[in-house]
Design a protein around this nucleic acid. Structure first.
Lengths: 232, 232
DNA sequence: CAGTGGTCTAGACCACAGC
DNA sequence: CTGTGGTCTAGACCACTGC
Protein backbone atom coordinates (compact mmCIF):
# COMPACT_ATOMS: atom_id res chain seq x y z
CA UNK A 1 0.00 0.00 0.00
CA UNK A 2 1.36 3.37 -0.98
CA UNK A 3 -0.18 6.18 1.00
CA UNK A 4 0.68 9.74 1.96
CA UNK A 5 2.86 10.30 5.01
CA UNK A 6 0.21 12.39 6.75
CA UNK A 7 -2.24 9.47 6.61
CA UNK A 8 0.35 7.19 8.16
CA UNK A 9 0.66 9.67 11.02
CA UNK A 10 -3.12 9.80 11.41
CA UNK A 11 -3.45 6.01 11.50
CA UNK A 12 -0.60 5.56 13.99
CA UNK A 13 -2.04 8.07 16.43
CA UNK A 14 -5.57 6.69 16.04
CA UNK A 15 -4.26 3.23 16.88
CA UNK A 16 -2.60 4.53 20.01
CA UNK A 17 -5.83 6.21 21.09
CA UNK A 18 -8.11 3.27 20.26
CA UNK A 19 -5.85 0.86 22.10
CA UNK A 20 -5.87 3.16 25.15
CA UNK A 21 -2.10 3.62 24.91
CA UNK A 22 -3.00 7.30 24.80
CA UNK A 23 -5.83 8.33 27.10
CA UNK A 24 -8.00 11.50 27.04
CA UNK A 25 -5.96 14.43 28.32
CA UNK A 26 -2.62 12.84 27.43
CA UNK A 27 -0.22 14.92 25.35
CA UNK A 28 0.78 13.82 21.84
CA UNK A 29 4.44 14.06 20.82
CA UNK A 30 5.19 17.65 19.83
CA UNK A 31 5.06 18.57 16.16
CA UNK A 32 8.83 18.91 15.89
CA UNK A 33 9.24 15.48 17.52
CA UNK A 34 6.82 13.96 14.99
CA UNK A 35 8.77 15.65 12.18
CA UNK A 36 11.89 13.80 13.27
CA UNK A 37 10.03 10.53 13.90
CA UNK A 38 8.54 10.45 10.39
CA UNK A 39 11.30 12.35 8.60
CA UNK A 40 8.65 14.77 7.43
CA UNK A 41 8.32 18.53 7.27
CA UNK A 42 6.22 20.35 9.80
CA UNK A 43 3.42 21.16 7.31
CA UNK A 44 3.01 17.46 6.60
CA UNK A 45 2.82 16.59 10.29
CA UNK A 46 0.34 19.42 10.85
CA UNK A 47 -1.84 18.16 8.01
CA UNK A 48 -2.16 14.83 9.80
CA UNK A 49 -2.90 16.47 13.13
CA UNK A 50 -5.52 18.70 11.50
CA UNK A 51 -7.39 15.59 10.39
CA UNK A 52 -7.31 14.18 13.92
CA UNK A 53 -8.63 17.49 15.27
CA UNK A 54 -11.41 17.44 12.72
CA UNK A 55 -12.44 13.90 13.57
CA UNK A 56 -12.58 14.76 17.25
CA UNK A 57 -9.59 12.67 18.35
CA UNK A 58 -7.35 15.47 19.57
CA UNK A 59 -7.36 19.18 20.36
CA UNK A 60 -4.61 21.82 20.38
CA UNK A 61 -3.60 24.37 22.96
CA UNK A 62 -1.27 27.00 21.45
CA UNK A 63 1.97 27.21 23.34
CA UNK A 64 1.33 23.91 25.13
CA UNK A 65 0.75 21.02 22.75
CA UNK A 66 -1.73 18.58 21.24
CA UNK A 67 -3.87 16.49 23.55
CA UNK A 68 -6.20 13.51 23.30
CA UNK A 69 -9.84 14.62 23.26
CA UNK A 70 -12.53 13.05 25.44
CA UNK A 71 -14.90 11.50 22.90
CA UNK A 72 -18.50 12.68 22.60
CA UNK A 73 -20.37 9.51 23.55
CA UNK A 74 -23.76 10.99 22.95
CA UNK A 75 -23.67 12.39 19.45
CA UNK A 76 -25.73 10.55 16.85
CA UNK A 77 -26.37 11.25 13.17
CA UNK A 78 -29.89 10.70 11.93
CA UNK A 79 -30.85 10.76 8.25
CA UNK A 80 -34.43 11.90 8.05
CA UNK A 81 -36.97 13.52 5.86
CA UNK A 82 -40.66 13.02 6.24
CA UNK A 83 -40.78 10.58 3.32
CA UNK A 84 -37.67 8.53 3.90
CA UNK A 85 -35.23 7.61 6.60
CA UNK A 86 -32.70 4.83 6.95
CA UNK A 87 -35.40 2.24 7.68
CA UNK A 88 -38.69 3.30 6.09
CA UNK A 89 -39.78 4.79 2.77
CA UNK A 90 -43.03 6.42 1.71
CA UNK A 91 -43.99 5.29 -1.78
CA UNK A 92 -47.23 7.20 -2.31
CA UNK A 93 -48.60 10.55 -1.17
CA UNK A 94 -52.06 12.04 -1.21
CA UNK A 95 -52.70 15.77 -0.99
CA UNK A 96 -55.63 16.43 1.33
CA UNK A 97 -55.69 20.22 1.41
CA UNK A 98 -53.77 23.37 0.52
CA UNK A 99 -55.11 26.51 2.14
CA UNK A 100 -54.38 29.93 3.51
CA UNK A 101 -55.13 29.95 7.23
CA UNK A 102 -54.95 32.34 10.17
CA UNK A 103 -52.60 30.88 12.79
CA UNK A 104 -53.86 30.04 16.24
CA UNK A 105 -51.85 31.28 19.20
CA UNK A 106 -49.66 28.21 19.48
CA UNK A 107 -48.72 28.28 15.80
CA UNK A 108 -48.13 32.05 15.82
CA UNK A 109 -45.76 31.63 18.76
CA UNK A 110 -43.95 28.77 17.12
CA UNK A 111 -43.40 30.73 13.91
CA UNK A 112 -42.74 33.98 15.83
CA UNK A 113 -45.35 35.95 13.91
CA UNK A 114 -48.41 38.00 14.85
CA UNK A 115 -51.79 36.35 14.45
CA UNK A 116 -52.84 38.63 11.59
CA UNK A 117 -50.26 37.13 9.23
CA UNK A 118 -51.44 34.50 6.82
CA UNK A 119 -49.90 31.06 6.66
CA UNK A 120 -50.04 28.37 4.00
CA UNK A 121 -51.30 25.06 5.37
CA UNK A 122 -50.63 21.82 3.51
CA UNK A 123 -52.11 18.54 4.67
CA UNK A 124 -51.06 15.20 3.18
CA UNK A 125 -51.31 11.46 3.74
CA UNK A 126 -48.32 9.15 3.22
CA UNK A 127 -48.61 5.52 2.15
CA UNK A 128 -46.28 2.53 2.15
CA UNK A 129 -47.34 -0.64 0.29
CA UNK A 130 -50.87 0.71 0.03
CA UNK A 131 -51.30 1.34 3.77
CA UNK A 132 -51.63 4.83 5.22
CA UNK A 133 -48.61 5.24 7.49
CA UNK A 134 -48.48 8.96 8.25
CA UNK A 135 -50.53 12.14 8.38
CA UNK A 136 -48.50 15.22 7.55
CA UNK A 137 -49.31 18.90 8.18
CA UNK A 138 -47.11 21.83 7.17
CA UNK A 139 -47.36 25.53 7.86
CA UNK A 140 -45.29 27.87 5.69
CA UNK A 141 -44.84 31.61 5.84
CA UNK A 142 -45.82 32.87 2.44
CA UNK A 143 -42.92 34.13 0.34
CA UNK A 144 -42.41 35.21 -3.22
CA UNK A 145 -41.80 32.21 -5.44
CA UNK A 146 -43.56 29.85 -3.03
CA UNK A 147 -45.16 26.92 -4.80
CA UNK A 148 -48.94 27.02 -4.65
CA UNK A 149 -49.38 24.66 -7.54
CA UNK A 150 -50.70 21.37 -6.24
CA UNK A 151 -48.52 19.25 -8.47
CA UNK A 152 -45.39 20.83 -7.02
CA UNK A 153 -46.51 20.32 -3.46
CA UNK A 154 -47.81 16.79 -3.48
CA UNK A 155 -44.51 14.93 -3.57
CA UNK A 156 -42.10 17.53 -2.19
CA UNK A 157 -40.22 17.30 1.09
CA UNK A 158 -40.14 20.30 3.40
CA UNK A 159 -36.79 21.78 2.28
CA UNK A 160 -37.81 21.33 -1.34
CA UNK A 161 -40.89 23.47 -0.77
CA UNK A 162 -38.82 26.21 0.81
CA UNK A 163 -35.87 26.08 -1.59
CA UNK A 164 -37.92 27.72 -4.30
CA UNK A 165 -37.70 30.97 -2.36
CA UNK A 166 -34.66 30.62 -0.07
CA UNK A 167 -31.13 29.49 -0.99
CA UNK A 168 -30.78 25.95 0.22
CA UNK A 169 -27.48 26.41 2.02
CA UNK A 170 -29.03 29.11 4.18
CA UNK A 171 -31.61 26.79 5.76
CA UNK A 172 -31.24 25.57 9.32
CA UNK A 173 -33.51 22.87 10.64
CA UNK A 174 -34.63 21.41 13.92
CA UNK A 175 -36.30 18.08 14.66
CA UNK A 176 -38.48 17.29 17.66
CA UNK A 177 -39.50 13.68 18.24
CA UNK A 178 -42.11 12.40 20.67
CA UNK A 179 -44.86 9.83 21.14
CA UNK A 180 -48.55 10.44 21.71
CA UNK A 181 -51.90 8.75 21.40
CA UNK A 182 -53.90 9.54 18.25
CA UNK A 183 -56.92 11.82 18.28
CA UNK A 184 -60.05 10.89 16.34
CA UNK A 185 -59.00 12.78 13.20
CA UNK A 186 -55.67 10.96 12.98
CA UNK A 187 -57.29 7.61 13.74
CA UNK A 188 -59.63 8.19 10.81
CA UNK A 189 -56.88 9.17 8.39
CA UNK A 190 -54.57 6.32 9.37
CA UNK A 191 -57.28 3.61 9.55
CA UNK A 192 -56.59 2.99 13.23
CA UNK A 193 -59.18 1.01 15.19
CA UNK A 194 -57.02 -0.57 17.90
CA UNK A 195 -54.73 0.98 20.40
CA UNK A 196 -51.80 2.26 18.36
CA UNK A 197 -49.23 4.81 19.51
CA UNK A 198 -48.21 7.66 17.23
CA UNK A 199 -44.64 8.75 16.61
CA UNK A 200 -44.68 12.50 16.04
CA UNK A 201 -41.84 14.26 14.26
CA UNK A 202 -41.86 18.04 14.09
CA UNK A 203 -39.59 19.82 11.62
CA UNK A 204 -38.92 23.50 11.98
CA UNK A 205 -37.05 25.44 9.31
CA UNK A 206 -35.15 28.65 9.95
CA UNK A 207 -33.49 31.03 7.51
CA UNK A 208 -29.95 32.21 8.14
CA UNK A 209 -31.15 34.99 10.42
CA UNK A 210 -32.74 32.31 12.64
CA UNK A 211 -36.22 33.41 11.71
CA UNK A 212 -38.69 30.49 11.55
CA UNK A 213 -39.86 29.93 7.98
CA UNK A 214 -42.06 26.91 8.44
CA UNK A 215 -43.32 24.17 10.75
CA UNK A 216 -44.03 20.61 9.70
CA UNK A 217 -45.64 17.94 11.86
CA UNK A 218 -45.74 14.33 10.74
CA UNK A 219 -47.80 11.74 12.65
CA UNK A 220 -46.51 8.22 11.98
CA UNK A 221 -48.21 4.97 12.94
CA UNK A 222 -45.95 3.67 15.70
CA UNK A 223 -46.31 0.08 14.46
CA UNK A 224 -44.99 0.96 10.99
CA UNK A 225 -42.22 3.51 11.43
CA UNK A 226 -38.83 3.53 13.13
CA UNK A 227 -36.08 6.13 13.08
CA UNK A 228 -32.42 5.29 13.32
CA UNK A 229 -29.33 7.20 14.42
CA UNK A 230 -25.69 6.20 14.33
CA UNK A 231 -22.47 7.48 15.81
CA UNK A 232 -19.88 8.73 13.33
CA UNK B 1 -10.77 42.51 12.74
CA UNK B 2 -7.47 40.79 12.17
CA UNK B 3 -7.91 37.29 10.87
CA UNK B 4 -5.91 34.76 8.88
CA UNK B 5 -6.01 34.96 5.11
CA UNK B 6 -7.37 31.42 4.80
CA UNK B 7 -10.42 32.35 6.89
CA UNK B 8 -11.07 35.34 4.65
CA UNK B 9 -11.08 32.97 1.68
CA UNK B 10 -13.47 30.61 3.48
CA UNK B 11 -15.89 33.39 4.37
CA UNK B 12 -15.86 34.88 0.87
CA UNK B 13 -16.66 31.57 -0.79
CA UNK B 14 -19.31 30.70 1.80
CA UNK B 15 -21.01 34.03 1.11
CA UNK B 16 -21.06 33.32 -2.61
CA UNK B 17 -22.60 29.91 -1.98
CA UNK B 18 -25.17 31.08 0.58
CA UNK B 19 -26.27 33.93 -1.67
CA UNK B 20 -26.69 31.47 -4.56
CA UNK B 21 -24.07 33.33 -6.60
CA UNK B 22 -22.40 29.93 -6.77
CA UNK B 23 -24.79 27.01 -7.21
CA UNK B 24 -24.21 23.29 -6.59
CA UNK B 25 -22.06 21.87 -9.37
CA UNK B 26 -20.49 25.23 -10.23
CA UNK B 27 -16.70 25.39 -10.35
CA UNK B 28 -14.75 27.55 -7.87
CA UNK B 29 -11.87 29.66 -9.18
CA UNK B 30 -8.80 27.46 -9.55
CA UNK B 31 -6.27 27.39 -6.73
CA UNK B 32 -3.69 29.35 -8.72
CA UNK B 33 -6.35 31.97 -9.54
CA UNK B 34 -7.22 32.29 -5.85
CA UNK B 35 -3.50 32.65 -5.06
CA UNK B 36 -3.33 35.70 -7.31
CA UNK B 37 -6.67 37.09 -6.09
CA UNK B 38 -5.62 37.02 -2.43
CA UNK B 39 -1.89 37.46 -2.96
CA UNK B 40 -1.39 34.23 -1.02
CA UNK B 41 0.66 31.10 -1.48
CA UNK B 42 -0.96 27.94 -2.66
CA UNK B 43 -0.75 26.20 0.74
CA UNK B 44 -2.72 29.04 2.29
CA UNK B 45 -5.41 28.87 -0.37
CA UNK B 46 -5.57 25.10 0.01
CA UNK B 47 -5.97 25.42 3.78
CA UNK B 48 -9.09 27.51 3.19
CA UNK B 49 -10.47 25.11 0.61
CA UNK B 50 -9.81 22.16 2.93
CA UNK B 51 -12.08 23.78 5.51
CA UNK B 52 -14.84 24.22 2.94
CA UNK B 53 -14.48 20.57 1.93
CA UNK B 54 -14.70 19.53 5.56
CA UNK B 55 -17.83 21.55 6.19
CA UNK B 56 -19.50 20.06 3.14
CA UNK B 57 -19.56 23.20 1.01
CA UNK B 58 -17.32 22.02 -1.81
CA UNK B 59 -15.62 18.93 -3.20
CA UNK B 60 -12.51 18.41 -5.30
CA UNK B 61 -11.89 16.44 -8.46
CA UNK B 62 -8.15 16.02 -9.11
CA UNK B 63 -7.19 17.33 -12.50
CA UNK B 64 -10.47 19.21 -12.89
CA UNK B 65 -11.13 21.64 -10.06
CA UNK B 66 -13.14 22.45 -6.96
CA UNK B 67 -16.94 22.41 -7.18
CA UNK B 68 -19.88 23.48 -5.04
CA UNK B 69 -21.39 20.52 -3.17
CA UNK B 70 -25.11 19.76 -3.07
CA UNK B 71 -25.97 20.11 0.63
CA UNK B 72 -27.26 17.16 2.64
CA UNK B 73 -30.72 18.38 3.62
CA UNK B 74 -31.54 15.39 5.72
CA UNK B 75 -28.67 15.04 8.17
CA UNK B 76 -29.46 15.86 11.81
CA UNK B 77 -27.33 15.70 14.93
CA UNK B 78 -29.01 14.36 18.04
CA UNK B 79 -27.45 14.53 21.50
CA UNK B 80 -28.78 11.59 23.49
CA UNK B 81 -28.09 9.32 26.34
CA UNK B 82 -30.75 7.52 28.29
CA UNK B 83 -30.56 9.99 31.16
CA UNK B 84 -30.25 13.29 29.35
CA UNK B 85 -30.87 14.86 25.99
CA UNK B 86 -31.17 18.44 24.83
CA UNK B 87 -34.67 18.79 26.33
CA UNK B 88 -35.07 16.40 29.26
CA UNK B 89 -32.98 15.28 32.20
CA UNK B 90 -33.32 12.34 34.58
CA UNK B 91 -32.56 13.42 38.13
CA UNK B 92 -33.05 10.13 40.00
CA UNK B 93 -32.56 6.48 39.19
CA UNK B 94 -33.72 3.31 40.91
CA UNK B 95 -32.07 -0.04 40.33
CA UNK B 96 -34.73 -2.73 40.01
CA UNK B 97 -32.62 -5.78 39.22
CA UNK B 98 -29.19 -7.00 38.17
CA UNK B 99 -29.10 -10.58 37.00
CA UNK B 100 -27.49 -13.15 34.78
CA UNK B 101 -30.05 -14.37 32.26
CA UNK B 102 -30.27 -16.76 29.34
CA UNK B 103 -31.20 -14.80 26.22
CA UNK B 104 -34.40 -15.58 24.37
CA UNK B 105 -34.19 -16.03 20.61
CA UNK B 106 -34.82 -12.39 19.77
CA UNK B 107 -32.14 -11.15 22.14
CA UNK B 108 -29.65 -13.80 21.01
CA UNK B 109 -30.19 -12.72 17.41
CA UNK B 110 -29.83 -9.08 18.26
CA UNK B 111 -26.55 -9.66 20.09
CA UNK B 112 -25.39 -12.24 17.52
CA UNK B 113 -24.70 -14.90 20.13
CA UNK B 114 -25.83 -18.46 20.72
CA UNK B 115 -28.54 -19.02 23.31
CA UNK B 116 -26.23 -20.81 25.72
CA UNK B 117 -24.20 -17.66 26.42
CA UNK B 118 -25.05 -15.76 29.56
CA UNK B 119 -26.03 -12.13 29.50
CA UNK B 120 -26.14 -9.53 32.24
CA UNK B 121 -29.55 -7.92 32.56
CA UNK B 122 -29.96 -4.58 34.31
CA UNK B 123 -33.38 -3.08 34.92
CA UNK B 124 -33.82 0.48 36.20
CA UNK B 125 -36.44 3.17 36.67
CA UNK B 126 -35.73 6.83 35.84
CA UNK B 127 -37.37 9.77 37.61
CA UNK B 128 -37.72 13.47 36.89
CA UNK B 129 -39.10 15.76 39.61
CA UNK B 130 -40.24 12.72 41.56
CA UNK B 131 -42.27 11.21 38.71
CA UNK B 132 -41.29 7.94 37.04
CA UNK B 133 -40.59 8.87 33.42
CA UNK B 134 -38.81 5.85 32.00
CA UNK B 135 -38.24 2.12 32.40
CA UNK B 136 -34.82 1.02 31.26
CA UNK B 137 -33.53 -2.48 30.46
CA UNK B 138 -29.99 -3.33 29.40
CA UNK B 139 -28.39 -6.55 28.23
CA UNK B 140 -24.60 -6.75 28.28
CA UNK B 141 -22.27 -9.49 27.13
CA UNK B 142 -20.18 -10.35 30.14
CA UNK B 143 -16.56 -9.24 29.89
CA UNK B 144 -13.61 -9.08 32.19
CA UNK B 145 -13.73 -5.88 34.24
CA UNK B 146 -17.49 -5.54 33.82
CA UNK B 147 -19.11 -3.77 36.74
CA UNK B 148 -21.34 -6.03 38.75
CA UNK B 149 -21.28 -3.79 41.77
CA UNK B 150 -24.70 -2.24 42.18
CA UNK B 151 -23.34 1.17 43.15
CA UNK B 152 -21.43 1.42 39.89
CA UNK B 153 -24.42 0.43 37.81
CA UNK B 154 -27.21 2.48 39.29
CA UNK B 155 -26.29 5.87 37.86
CA UNK B 156 -24.19 4.90 34.85
CA UNK B 157 -25.08 5.47 31.22
CA UNK B 158 -24.63 2.68 28.73
CA UNK B 159 -21.18 3.64 27.39
CA UNK B 160 -19.98 4.17 30.94
CA UNK B 161 -20.88 0.59 31.81
CA UNK B 162 -18.98 -0.71 28.80
CA UNK B 163 -15.97 1.57 29.06
CA UNK B 164 -14.71 -0.35 32.06
CA UNK B 165 -13.82 -3.19 29.72
CA UNK B 166 -13.52 -1.65 26.24
CA UNK B 167 -11.59 1.46 25.19
CA UNK B 168 -14.13 4.21 24.78
CA UNK B 169 -12.95 5.37 21.36
CA UNK B 170 -13.55 1.93 19.95
CA UNK B 171 -17.30 1.93 20.64
CA UNK B 172 -19.78 2.38 17.85
CA UNK B 173 -23.42 2.93 18.65
CA UNK B 174 -26.78 2.76 16.98
CA UNK B 175 -30.10 4.27 18.04
CA UNK B 176 -33.55 3.04 17.05
CA UNK B 177 -36.53 5.19 17.93
CA UNK B 178 -40.20 4.21 17.76
CA UNK B 179 -43.55 4.56 19.49
CA UNK B 180 -45.69 1.84 21.03
CA UNK B 181 -48.46 1.32 23.55
CA UNK B 182 -47.36 0.22 27.03
CA UNK B 183 -47.83 -3.35 28.26
CA UNK B 184 -49.09 -3.99 31.79
CA UNK B 185 -45.59 -4.24 33.30
CA UNK B 186 -44.55 -0.85 31.94
CA UNK B 187 -47.86 0.72 32.95
CA UNK B 188 -47.23 -0.47 36.49
CA UNK B 189 -43.67 0.84 36.64
CA UNK B 190 -44.52 4.21 35.13
CA UNK B 191 -47.76 4.78 37.10
CA UNK B 192 -49.82 4.90 33.90
CA UNK B 193 -53.59 4.57 34.26
CA UNK B 194 -54.79 6.49 31.20
CA UNK B 195 -53.99 6.04 27.57
CA UNK B 196 -50.36 7.17 27.25
CA UNK B 197 -48.06 6.39 24.34
CA UNK B 198 -44.52 5.17 24.98
CA UNK B 199 -41.44 6.49 23.19
CA UNK B 200 -39.00 3.61 22.90
CA UNK B 201 -35.29 4.22 22.31
CA UNK B 202 -33.04 1.24 21.68
CA UNK B 203 -29.28 1.65 21.98
CA UNK B 204 -26.98 -0.96 20.53
CA UNK B 205 -23.25 -0.87 21.20
CA UNK B 206 -20.65 -2.44 18.95
CA UNK B 207 -16.93 -2.87 19.45
CA UNK B 208 -14.53 -1.89 16.68
CA UNK B 209 -14.95 -5.28 14.97
CA UNK B 210 -18.69 -4.51 14.67
CA UNK B 211 -19.55 -7.19 17.19
CA UNK B 212 -22.58 -6.27 19.32
CA UNK B 213 -21.57 -5.75 22.93
CA UNK B 214 -24.84 -4.71 24.45
CA UNK B 215 -28.47 -3.75 23.90
CA UNK B 216 -30.34 -1.12 25.88
CA UNK B 217 -34.05 -0.38 25.63
CA UNK B 218 -35.55 2.65 27.32
CA UNK B 219 -39.33 3.11 27.52
CA UNK B 220 -40.20 6.78 28.05
CA UNK B 221 -43.60 8.19 28.94
CA UNK B 222 -44.62 9.98 25.72
CA UNK B 223 -46.15 12.86 27.65
CA UNK B 224 -42.88 13.61 29.47
CA UNK B 225 -40.07 13.09 27.01
CA UNK B 226 -39.04 14.68 23.72
CA UNK B 227 -35.92 14.20 21.64
CA UNK B 228 -34.39 16.93 19.54
CA UNK B 229 -32.10 16.96 16.50
CA UNK B 230 -30.51 19.86 14.70
CA UNK B 231 -28.71 20.39 11.41
CA UNK B 232 -25.07 21.41 11.66
C1' DC C 1 0.39 19.63 -24.33
C1' DA C 2 -1.10 23.04 -20.47
C1' DG C 3 -3.93 23.27 -16.48
C1' DT C 4 -5.74 21.11 -12.49
C1' DG C 5 -5.53 19.38 -7.75
C1' DG C 6 -2.52 16.19 -4.18
C1' DT C 7 1.65 15.84 -1.67
C1' DC C 8 5.73 17.69 0.37
C1' DT C 9 9.79 20.58 1.77
C1' DA C 10 12.71 23.86 4.35
C1' DG C 11 12.60 27.51 5.78
C1' DA C 12 10.27 31.99 8.25
C1' DC C 13 7.85 35.04 11.85
C1' DC C 14 4.37 35.32 15.38
C1' DA C 15 1.88 34.70 20.01
C1' DC C 16 1.73 32.17 23.80
C1' DA C 17 3.14 28.57 28.00
C1' DG C 18 6.17 27.92 31.57
C1' DC C 19 10.37 28.20 33.80
C1' DC D 1 14.60 32.27 27.87
C1' DT D 2 13.13 27.85 25.22
C1' DG D 3 9.51 25.15 23.42
C1' DT D 4 5.01 25.03 21.80
C1' DG D 5 1.44 25.56 18.22
C1' DG D 6 -0.59 29.07 14.30
C1' DT D 7 0.24 31.25 10.00
C1' DC D 8 2.57 31.71 5.70
C1' DT D 9 5.85 31.46 1.68
C1' DA D 10 7.97 29.98 -2.72
C1' DG D 11 9.20 26.76 -4.55
C1' DA D 12 8.99 21.34 -6.08
C1' DC D 13 7.27 16.83 -8.22
C1' DC D 14 3.39 13.88 -9.15
C1' DA D 15 -1.07 12.07 -11.36
C1' DC D 16 -4.81 13.28 -13.61
C1' DT D 17 -7.95 15.84 -17.10
C1' DG D 18 -9.05 17.49 -21.50
C1' DC D 19 -7.75 19.37 -25.70
Amino acid sequence: MISPVYLKIVEDIKKKINSAELKPGDAISSETALCKEYGASRMTVRKGLAILVNEGYIYSIPGKGNFVQKPDYDKYIIQYNEMSNSINTVDKTQLLEVNIVVPDEKLANSLQITRNKNVIMIRRLFFTDGDPVAYDVKYLLYQKGMPIVEKEIEHATFPEMMSKSTPIFALKKELTIYAQTPDEEIKRYLDIYDNVAILVVEQKLYNNENKPMGLGITYYRGDYIKLQGITE
